[in-house]
Design a protein around this nucleic acid. Structure first.
Lengths: 231, 231
DNA sequence: ATGATGCTGCCAGAAACTGACAGCATGCGG
DNA sequence: CCGCATGCTGTCAGTTTCTGGCAGCATCAT
């Protein structure tokens, strides 16, 4: 691989890792010695890339580098199409539509050959377990989460008891057989999970809850010991 | 200026000029001889840049090498992130990486507020059923499919019998618990499914199979009565 | 036909790239 | 305080690559 190709690779590697990455890791990824990696970093910096390196931490590329990334590879298109198909198939109809629209927007900027890959992608999503029907609209939950609004729900637990709660929803988790809203429960004063199919009614309140959903997600992850999944 | 820096510059120069530019002009702009400019152009082309050069006219960079800015709605971002997370979590490591890369590329061309949506997307993929371990590399299968190559496999069926077959793979289907290659089986002369975890060895042959994978996929869909799923 | 331009092969000297080693700086956890 | 992980720099020699110049062919518009 020529040096210039390697520099593009390095840039992409930096874009992929949002957290600091050690020079050693990047050197291995790009297949050069550590010394050369330092030189490559310096080279990119000369060209205007805003790369920050802290001793003991690693490198981060701050957004805003003038050079946009290279086009998707065929494999990346496959990954995008597969993901989109899964969402289109398993999520609520709003999100399905959004997935399709997103893919269409991407298709619009692809050169002909990649658009063809996109249209004829050979990775399929098999029919999954049937999700229990929700009585509420999942799109409502996503809105509440996105806007950080309190949510008033009536919930029927596994044992059949109904309860009315106000929760601060901050995440929605998709399992193979079920979907779960994760939120802070005002009643219990703790993080709780609620299967969407057991939520009987839900109303987005016009009250913003007092914490940032991202912070709550982080706190919940720590409390549950759940690492970042996926991307 | 080193060569690799110059290539970045050349790319920018090509991006800046929308109309064809003569090699001579580009050579002056980048400060090299014409001969070297031709080499630089060739170098960029090797890296996938679609640069058109017409005798008597000049060079134009056709779109499709660099990713242009993209715009999405918040919901579309959520859909993309969710899909990507699912792929990153459930597919083979190559495809996982591709999914992450694709998302990183998208992130790089997003305006700051949307990039933030992308980073803090509240839709999670729950841990799924554990997929049985494959003894072969799924990436190999995807390559065979993408390149429309025959595949020699040894397969152990559900009842335990082993067989060696040559198949024309044209699709890979992801189920919650299992992955399945779909192909035309030369032995049976019909479409067959093969669970990837039951494929014991697989070798991509250097022979292209005689039909287009897209046509086979269509034929298979009709034969099985399977509608388009997802996107 | 002519001119402008793209494109390729060849060659020899010049420039760069590279890895290894040695060393310093910085921040963190003990 | 230490040790450690990490960033960062200098130096050097061997290797690779890059570069310019020249010569020549191809293609297109005029």
């Amino acid at each position: 691989m020529s040096r210039s190709e390697r520099l593009f690779d390095l840039l992409q590697a930096l874009r992929r890792h949002r957290r600091p990455v050690s020079g050693k890791a990047l050197a291995e990824e790009t297949g050069v010695s550590l010394r050369t990696l330092y030189r490559d970093i310096a080279s990119l910096q000369t060209q205007g890339a805003d790369i920050e390196g802290e001793p003991g931490v690693g490198y981060v590329l701050k957004p805003g580098f003038l050079l946009p990334p290279l086009m998707f590879s065929a494999e990346e298109i496959e990954a995008l199409v597969l993901g989109t198909r899964w969402v289109a198939d398993r999520a609520d109809s709003h999100l399905s539509g959004a997935a399709r629209n997103a893919l269409a927007r991407i298709a619009a900027v692809l050169p002909a050959d990649l658009r063809n890959e996109l249209d004829t992608s050979p990775l399929l999503v098999g029919p999954g377990a049937k999700l229990p029907a929700d009585s509420i609209d999942i799109a409502l939950l996503r809105t509440a989460i996105r806007m950080e609004r309190k949510l008033a729900i009536t919930y029927r637990s596994g044992s059949g008891e109904a309860s009315a709660r106000t929760i601060w929803p901050f995440a929605l988790s998709f399992f193979d057989h079920v979907r779960v809203v994760i939120g802070w429960c005002e009643l219990r004063e703790s993080f709780r999970h609620f299967r969407t199919d057991r939520i009987e009614t839900a109303a987005v309140l016009d009250i913003r809850y007092p914490r940032r959903r991202q912070a709550m997600l982080r706190a919940w992850r720590e409390a549950e010991g759940i690492p970042l999944r996926g991307a």
